[in-house]
Simulated scan of single mutants.
Amino acid sequence: MIDTRTAPYGALILRVVLGALFLAHAGLKIFVFTPAGTAQFFASLGLPGALAYLTILAEVAGGIALILGVWTRAVSLALVPVLLGSILFVHGAAGFFFSNANGGWEYPAFWAVTLVVQALIGDGALALRPLGRPALQAEGR
């Protein structure tokens, strides 16, 4: 049974933490590795360098949208491919544990699953919703 009094706050916490994680990873790419350095890294993996800029944009826009609670379900699902790409092209070969050299794939896999969970449970409390879209009642946000 779902506790409809507290479930919206659980969804809120998950949504804000997911958004903050995306902003932190975008910040790493922008301020530490630099966008040009990130593009060079993507190219070294055999990916188009321009994909790095798209990834940074997705992480920033998606992180902000999640924190604010705008289009939460769609944004959550749209960000899953970013994490699947990190598993396939960066972390997958390093093995399961993220403490391995080059990081393992369990952290981005868990992160992808939490995005799917967020998409299933919805916005939660204190979400900004696009104009014309009413807040859902306690039976699920």
Rank of each mutant, 00 (worst) to 15 (best):
S44E: 12
A125Q: 03
G104T: 07
R133W: 15
V32S: 15
R133P: 04
L88G: 06
P108F: 13
D123R: 02
L68Y: 02
A125S: 14
A138D: 11
T55H: 02
V80Q: 08
A138T: 09
L88K: 05
A119W: 08
L115C: 08
G103C: 05
A127E: 06
V75W: 03
L12G: 09
A36E: 15
W111H: 12
K29D: 06
I87S: 05
A11M: 11
F89E: 01
P130C: 08
L120C: 02
L12R: 05
G132D: 02
I64L: 11
I64C: 06
S86E: 08
F110K: 11
I64E: 02
V90L: 02
F33E: 15
L126I: 13
G19A: 04
G63K: 01
I13S: 14
A26V: 04
Q137L: 12
Q137E: 14
L136G: 11
E59T: 07
L128M: 14
V16Q: 07
A78C: 13
T55L: 08
A74F: 14
Y53N: 09
G46P: 02
V60R: 04
A20I: 09
G92N: 03
G132I: 04
W71V: 06
P130E: 09
T72N: 03
P48H: 05
A127T: 04
A65P: 05
Y107H: 04
F42A: 01
A11P: 08
A119S: 14
V16W: 02
L18T: 00
L68Q: 01
A112G: 10
L51M: 15
D123I: 03
A50L: 14
T114A: 13
A24L: 15
A39D: 07
L131D: 07
V80L: 08
A94K: 04
L12C: 10
A109Y: 10
R133L: 13
G104A: 06
L28N: 09
N102A: 14
L51C: 04
A101P: 08
L57D: 00
A78K: 10
L84W: 00
F110W: 15
L14Q: 08
T55V: 14
R73S: 10
N102Y: 11
P108T: 03
V16P: 06
M1H: 07
P108H: 06
A50T: 11
V80F: 01
T6P: 01
G37L: 13
L77T: 07
I56R: 01
L51S: 13
E106Q: 09
A39V: 08
F41H: 07
P81G: 01
Q40D: 15
I67C: 09
E59L: 15
G62E: 04
T4W: 10
A112T: 05
L12M: 15
A43Y: 02
V113N: 11
A119E: 03
A43D: 03
N100Y: 10
V75C: 02
R15H: 13
A94V: 04
I30Y: 02
G46Y: 03
E139S: 12
W71K: 13
G95T: 01
F110P: 05
I67N: 01
